[in-house]
Amino acid sequence: MPDARTEILARVREALVGSAIDPVETVSPREGIAVATPELVDLFAERVADYRAVVERCSAEDLEDRIAAALPAGGVIVPPALSLRVADAVVDDGTLTAAELDLIAAVVTEARVGIAETGTIVLDHTPDQGRRAISLVPDTHICIVREDQVVADVPDAIALLDPARPQTWISGPSATSDIELDRVEGVHGPRTLHVLVVAVAR
């Protein structure tokens, strides 16, 4: 039995037969993705900081110390396959509820890609990033982005992402404004975003 997506696309194609609009086609991955040059990484860091996020550049050797210094009091949770050790962290096993996660002050995750043009970080929730809830509920998100994960723009990012996977696109701390333009942070996600941009050997 076809899944819902396949069935919907089949119906769209049937409805478009004989029309001037082409049916939906699968887009092939984009070729020629820009290499993460130092200038591209600088732009990424600048754009992330424009969103009122904390941005630090560091070496892989200094990463654990930078994470320890950035952690607030109140506990920390990490995804099951984080590539480094975070002292006293709870490793998420998928059983904690949103209410229980709300009692944990911080989360440390890795990222799938960083977009220089928009200052956006994308998670696709592989085991080094964990399930979506742990990156949205704790009040502080410490996110690790390697320099070689930075791409120029959104099309380059999309070319690297699997559309079948869940994705979270993060542009700064969670923030919203009411009709009087009063900014409120932390309503839909972490109030604090701390991005560690890690140098890689070239």
Rank of each mutant, 00 (worst) to 15 (best):
L71V: 05
I170N: 07
R11L: 03
S174H: 10
G75Y: 08
R13D: 13
P138Y: 02
D92T: 00
V41L: 14
G130L: 11
A105T: 06
L123W: 11
H194A: 07
D124H: 03
D102Y: 06
S135W: 07
G189K: 09
L103E: 14
E180N: 08
A159P: 06
D22A: 14
D148V: 02
A133T: 14
P72D: 08
L123N: 09
R13M: 00
P163S: 10
E46L: 12
I121D: 09
I144K: 07
T192H: 13
L63E: 05
D22T: 08
L181R: 12
V200S: 14
V54R: 08
I115A: 10
S19A: 00
E185K: 01
E7S: 02
D50Y: 05
D124C: 03
V187Y: 05
I158Q: 15
A81Q: 15
L71E: 06
G189S: 05
T95V: 11
L84F: 15
A60F: 09
V108Q: 07
L196H: 11
S171I: 03
I77S: 04
V113A: 09
A175M: 10
I179Q: 15
R57C: 13
T192Q: 14
I21Y: 03
C58S: 14
P155W: 10
W169H: 13
L103R: 13
T97Y: 07
E25G: 06
I104K: 03
D50V: 02
V195P: 07
V137P: 13
R132A: 05
P23M: 01
V78Y: 12
A157W: 12
G74P: 02
L101E: 13
A111G: 06
D3E: 12
V55C: 12
S171Q: 13
P166Q: 02
R57K: 15
G114H: 08
R131A: 14
Y51N: 09
G114A: 07
Q167C: 02
V91K: 01
V41Y: 15
F44T: 14
V150F: 15
D139G: 03
S135E: 09
A98F: 10
D88V: 00
R13V: 00
D102T: 03
V17H: 04
A87Y: 00
E14F: 00
I21Q: 08
L43F: 05
P166H: 02
T97K: 10
V184C: 06
A20V: 04
V27Y: 01
E7Y: 00
V76C: 08
V24I: 09
V54I: 12
D182G: 03
T118E: 15
L40C: 11
S171D: 03
R52M: 08
V90I: 15
P155C: 07
T37F: 00
G18M: 02
A89D: 04
E180M: 06
D88P: 02
S83W: 04
A133M: 14
I104D: 02
D65N: 04
V195T: 15
I179M: 14
E31L: 01
V48Q: 05
G189M: 06
R52I: 03
G32T: 02
T176E: 09
G114S: 04
D162F: 01
L101G: 12
A49W: 05
V91E: 09
S171M: 11
E61I: 01
S174M: 10
